[in-house]
Design a protein around this nucleic acid. Structure first.
Lengths: 189, 189
DNA sequence: AGGCTTACCTAGAGGTCCTAGGCAAATCAT
DNA sequence: ATGATTTGCCTAGGACCTCTAGGTAAGCCT
C-alpha cells in the first residue's frame, strides 16, 4: 500500500487551506485525514493532538502574515508605512478568514515567543519611527494600532458593520487617516 | 420522577455561567444537561440545537452588556462618557470572558436586528454628541471606537500584551486619552 | 538481503450532537 | 374528580470526532 507521505508541515499546510474553506472551527483531525485518504489514527504520528494541529496552524498564519506585512512595509515610512501595514493586515485577514481565526488562539508564552508574534510588534514599532513617539507612549501606540486593526477586521468579518449603509471601505480609509493624525499629535501625558 | 423544570431561559442563563467558568467553546449540550442532571436529549425540547443555544447566549450577553454600559453612561458626557463607556465595556469583557466570547459570534441579520446590538451602536453615537462630529464621520468614529475597544480587550485576553513590561492598565488609560484627543480634533476629509 | 525505523493500519473506548419514539407528570375540560 | 391533552424527560441508537494500543509493511541503511 503506497504511503501518503505525510509530515507535520504538509498537514499544517492542508489544515490552513481547509480552515479558509470551511472555517477554523471545522478543522478537525478527521476532516484532515479524509483529505489525505488515510485513517484518523495515522495523523497522530505527526501531530500530538487536535490542539497541537491548531497551534501549528496559528503559528503558520502568524508567519505568513508577518511576511506579507514585511513586504508591504519595505521602503515606506510615515503615513505610507501605516497605510501599507494596515492594508496588508486587513487583506490577509479577509483573504484568509480561517487562518486569521487561528491566529486569535491564545498561545502559551513559549510558543508565542518562538512564533512570529514578536516580529509583528517589531514591525508595528517600525511604523512609529516615522512619528515622534518615545517610550512608554510608543508601546501604548503599538497596542492601540494593533487593537484597532484587529478590532476592525474582526467586527467587519462578524458583520457588525453591515447594519449601516456607510461603506466599510470608506470607514477604513478614514480610520487610517484618523490614526495617522492621532500619531502625529499624540497627547503628551 | 420529579421534573427539573427547564426552560430555554434557564438553560441560557446556566450556559452563560458555564461559559464564564469553562470557556465559551466548552459550552456543550452535554455539559449543560449534566449540570441539570438530565439527559442530553431532554434539552432539545427547549433549544433547537447547539448553535441555537450559543446564539441565545450571545443575545443574553449583548443585552447584559448594553444594560451595564447604559448605567455607566447615565448623566455623563464628553470624555467622561467616553471613559465610562470604555471601562464598562472592558470590565464586562474581563469579568465575563465566556459571555464576551459568545458576543463575537456572527449573528444572522435577523437575530442581530432584534438583539441589543442596535442599542450598542446607539449608545456609542450618544458619546459622540459630546464631540463635534457629523455624518458620515460619526459612523466612522463609532466604528473606530468599537474596533479599538473590542480589539484591546480581545488582545489583552489573548495575552498579546504580556510580552512587554508596560502595564496593560496604563496603556488602556492612555488609549482612552488618545481617543478623546482624536475625537476632539477629528481630521476633516 | 537483512534489519531498523516509521508510516499507516485495525480495533476500540469515550465524548458530543441529534432524532425517533415512549411514558409519565402536569394541566385542562367537563 | 376523572378523563383527555399537552409536554417534560426518558431510552435507544446513529453519525461524527478524539485519541490510545498494538500490529503490519514500506522504505531506508548497511
Amino acid at each position: 500500500m503506497a504511503r501518503a507521505g505525510l509530515t507535520a508541515d504538509r498537514l499544517t499546510q492542508a489544515a490552513a487551506e481547509l480552515a479558509d474553506e470551511v472555517g477554523f472551527e471545522n478543522v478537525t483531525v478527521s476532516a484532515l485525514a479524509r483529505h489525505f485518504g488515510v485513517k484518523d489514527a495515522s495523523l497522530y504520528s505527526h501531530i500530538r493532538n487536535a490542539h497541537d494541529l491548531r497551534v501549528r496552524l496559528a503559528v503558520l498564519a502568524l508567519a505568513e502574515l508577518a511576511d506579507q506585512v514585511s513586504d508591504a512595509l519595505a521602503g515606506r515610512s510615515g503615513k505610507d508605512a501605516l497605510v501599507a501595514f494596515a492594508n496588508a493586515y486587513r487583506s490577509y485577514a479577509l483573504a484568509h478568514p480561517g487562518r486569521y481565526a487561528a491566529m486569535q488562539m491564545a498561545l502559551d508564552p513559549d510558543t508565542a515567543a518562538t512564533s512570529a508574534a514578536g516580529k509583528h510588534a517589531e514591525m508595528t514599532r517600525a511604523i512609529l519611527r516615522g512619528y515622534d513617539l518615545w517610550e512608554p507612549d510608543q508601546t501604548d501606540a503599538v497596542r492601540l494600532l494593533h487593537s484597532t486593526f484587529h478590532g476592525y477586521v474582526s467586527l467587519e468579518r462578524a458583520g457588525a458593520f453591515h447594519s449601516h449603509p456607510r461603506g466599510v471601505e470608506a470607514s477604513w480609509i478614514r480610520t487610517l487617516d484618523a490614526l495617522d493624525s492621532l500619531l502625529r499629535a499624540w497627547p503628551v501625558g
